[in-house]
Design a protein around this nucleic acid. Structure first.
Length: 488
RNA sequence: AGGGGUGUAGCGCAGCCCGGUUAGCGCACUUGGUUUGGGACCAAGGGGUCGUAGGUUCGAAUCCUAUCACCCCUACCA
């Protein structure tokens, strides 16, 4: 038997890369730092996208599309924003190639230099707010609730499939509001949507909270984040929602007339999740046998394997089951390959993370049963064919719930409360996971802790109780515990 | 950015030190047969500008020079 995936215990990074590759999710491309998302991986993204898109629409948002290119001057209109992204921008300088006069191939035509260079968007606040300037004149134009599904480019030095790539797919919401309170509410509401999506669909528990000033989005007054804990004890920022104040309205001069005929600057939010969520999904649920996908995001929920291979009697029964399951809205296919042996197929679908496998053979049909195998626990059960559609529907829900429960238990196990700096250092260095500790609220302390332990302040949790305490590092007063961890 | 390493079939590698038949092995692929309830076996096939460019030589995957790409460690970034 070919063992194709590195064990997690042996080398977690290699395990992750093996899963991405062997499950057919993505592969490296000819372009450094950019991956090809293969059909299997893209199908998961489509499941995520469809669900999120529905959630955005249910909360009043509409989709639009803005240009890939941003004039260089736009980016520098908001000082903090450009500071945050300048070091990782791809820049377009010319618009034409020509035959190489000195040899084979083509070269950039020096006569085709652009008047103003264009930046490939690392995020779209600037081009969008430049557009909003023309769209917003009156309080009646507000709120403006727009989302865009797009690709962005951030020229990262070190890349990893899905987790950090030079180009990635995401959605970015950009909303404009008349009142500050409305914008803050919007940012918080989306924060809730992200958390709900993570838990209900990805079966991935997250901590909701606010970023410290140091970790905030470039140009934001407040960044709300959902933080997830991966199997190896490292944190992953899974989605952020920003209250941008009036920074972009002022930078792009976006004003509206209120109902007293007075000019006011607009209040803004932006928020996004990316294909990084696929990385999060992998590192939350998958195991040494391959990918594990929660049923609600699985492009294929059930696979039927004729044993030992398709024949007339088995296929007739399999087709009946397909019809029953499809009527329940369950996605299902029959593996009709006659060459591969059952054992090979079992391993193959486990690698790809299909939540439920149904085996049908002569032995089963004689007993009026089917062999049902669930991916999450790898249990196998013999179940009567009668009523199989309800059994499968329930089992999918049970798997979904089990994955969430399992991830929650893991997070609980890897969450430590530290009351001294010694305990803190010990937990970060030897145990990993989230470490709750009092913090004096200063960037100085945060940076010292990062320098000494490599742990970063993940968030100031929404539900952390207000209590009197002292900072584990400085001994200064603190009102609540915050979460530190080593992060991706 | 500094140090180290690797480029040979889709993937993983041997061959290089010490130049010399037609560049080889495993997996994968194609065809046929036997198999088939946890990653089958046998047989026959297909697939290579040996990263690229120059040089040395009668002759270069092998030696020399340059160059490009990738990986690891340290640093940086998140």
């Amino acid at each position: 038997m070919a063992k194709e995936i590195t064990d997690r215990a042996e080398n977690y990074s290699q395990w992750y890369l093996d899963i991405v590759k062997k499950a057919g999710l993505a592969e490296n491309s000819a372009v450094r730092g950019c991956m090809v998302i293969k059909p299997t991986g893209f199908a998961i993204w489509e499941m995520m996208k469809d669900q999120l898109d529905q959630m955005f629409k249910d909360t009043g948002h509409v989709n639009a599309y803005f240009p890939l290119f941003i004039p260089k001057s736009f980016l520098s209109k908001e000082a903090e924003h450009v500071e945050g992204f300048a070091k990782e921008c791809a820049v377009v300088t010319h618009h034409r190639l020509m035959n190489n006069p000195d040899g084979p191939g083509v070269v950039v035509d020096p006569d085709a230099k652009l008047e103003e260079e264009l930046v490939v968007r690392p995020t779209s606040e600037t081009i969008i707010w430049n557009t909003y300037k023309d769209w917003i004149k009156s309080y009646r134009d507000l709120p403006l609730l727009i989302n865009q599904w797009a690709n962005v480019v951030r020229w990262e030095i070190r890349t990893r499939p899905f987790l950090r790539t030079a180009e990635f797919l995401w959605q970015e919401g950009h909303t404009a509001h008349a009142l500050k309170v409305e914008a803050v509410e919007e940012a918080k509401m989306i924060h809730e949507v992200y958390a709900r999506f993570a838990e209900d669909y990805m079966a991935m528990p997250v901590i909701k909270g606010a970023k410290s000033a140091n970790e905030r989005f470039a140009g934001a007054l407040e960044t709300y984040t959902i933080e997830a804990l991966m199997q190896d004890g490292k944190a992953l920022q899974a989605g952020t929602s920003h209250f941008l104040g009036q920074n972009f309205a002022k930078a792009f001069d976006v004003k509206y007339l209120d109902n007293n005929n007075k000019e006011q600057y607009v209040w803004a939010t932006s928020w996004g999740v990316s294909t990084r969520l696929i990385g999060a999904l992998i590192m939350t649920h998958s195991d040494d046998d391959g990918l594990v996908i929660p049923p609600r995001l699985a492009p294929l929920q059930v696979v039927i394997i004729p044993i030992p291979k398709p024949n007339e009697m088995i296929m007739a029964e399999a087709e009946k089951i397909v019809t029953l399951l499809k009527a329940k809205g369950i996605s299902v296919k029959i593996d009709k390959d006659k060459k591969k042996r059952p054992g090979f197929k079992f391993a193959e679908y486990e690698m790809k993370g299909v939540p439920i496998r149904i085996g049908i053979g002569k032995r089963d049909l004689e007993k009026g049963e089917l062999e049902i195998a669930r991916r999450d626990t790898k249990e196998k059960m013999n179940v009567p064919i009668e009523g199989i559609e309800d059994y499968i529907a329930n089992l999918l829900e049970e798997i979904q719930a089990n994955l969430l429960a399992r991830a929650k238990a893991h997070r609980a196990e890897y969450t430590t409360e530290a009351s001294t700096y010694e305990e803190f250092k010990d937990a970060i260095a030897n145990k990993g996971g989230f470490v709750l500790a009092h913090w004096d609220g200063t960037t100085e302390t945060e940076l010292k802790i990062k320098e000494e332990t490599t742990a970063t302040l993940r968030c100031i949790p929404d539900d952390s109780p207000i209590e009197e305490g002292v900072c584990i590092y400085s001994g200064k007063p603190s009102k609540q515990k915050v979460i530190f961890a080593k992060a991706y």
